[in-house]
Design a protein around this nucleic acid. Structure first.
Lengths: 155, 155
DNA sequence: TGCACTCTTGACTTAGAAGGTCGAAAATGT
DNA sequence: ACATTTTCGACCTTCTAAGTCAAGAGTGCA
């Protein structure tokens, strides 16, 4: 249940592209702006290209840009492009696992976890992210002070 | 954003212990009941012991049992015992990361993700899990048909 | 005491991900 | 046509996840 470096980098790079607007942006500029290792970033951008999230052109005036409008790309799209499906259990979608005995209802729990993650990541678009006008669900979840603490009351 | 085999196994073993009640249960019986590799499971149970979630005794009448009542152990406790903190980004708690430029608001998004995961995992106790009477939040999140689909409309 | 039983611990193996290096391919401007 | 710029993709190293193996140490019973 952790967010990989790859996913974090991918979203940051995509945000930078969303903010840049139309023209192609060089990988090096993205790497500088977000302090991401350049070579690693280019692998990530390649993944994003294969998933149709960014486009790229080589050569002197080349670079990367968003293949779709920033308002139509969600953070979930970006994360899935580099990490694969969200909230899989043992590399298997939770609805495809059958639990036995006392753990029978665990499937519902994992599905609820996936749904709750999706409720955030599929609502926030790159346009929301760069404008800072995040959808209501984010505000509701970050309103409670304990949301900002590393550990909760129970430890 | 995936659930490790270790975490899944840990919750299943803990559920089995919760269902078993008082007496010590042998590792082998847990492994059989939940189809978990025995040697791997015993490493996991050791983690759970170190975190004070289970107790153990060696010898002929030995085995494992829950150190606390099943209604006082949440799934979040179990997951944290084997995976470490929930929803960390690049092995760092999201509130400790500072994002620059266009990605400035990404921190709020990751914190919202963590809060949403916690809202499920910290609500469900082992007692809830074995009885099948899951708290309302799970029912709400699993009610929508798309929660049960591997991919959503947008892909 | 001795012994069978079971947890405890550490070393080891394998597979894949994280992160980085290098050379080739392709597009642009002169 | 040619040099420059930048993406593209193969390869390599380090680290973690997942799982195995074998030996050590406490517990109960005869």
């Amino acid at each position: 249940m952790r967010v990989s470096a790859k996913a974090d980098y991918a979203v940051r790079a995509a945000a930078e592209l969303a903010a840049a607007g139309e023209g192609p942006v060089k990988g090096e500029r993205l790497a500088d702006a977000q302090e991401i290792p350049l070579q690693f970033l280019e692998h990530i951008l390649l993944d994003l290209k294969h998933q149709g999230i960014v486009s790229a052109r080589r050569g002197a005036k080349g670079g990367y840009w968003l293949a779709r409008p920033a308002a139509e790309v969600t953070i979930a799209d970006v994360v899935r492009a580099v990490e694969g499906p969200i909230a899989h259990v043992q590399s298997t979608p939770p609805e495809a696992i059958s639990y036995h005995g006392s753990a029978e209802h665990l499937r519902e729990v994992w599905i609820a976890v996936r749904a709750s993650v999706r409720s955030v990541l599929e609502e926030v678009t790159l346009a929301d992210l760069v404008s800072g006008e995040l959808p209501p669900v984010v505000g509701e979840l970050t309103a409670a002070p304990e949301a900002w603490l590393a550990s909760t009351a129970k430890g």
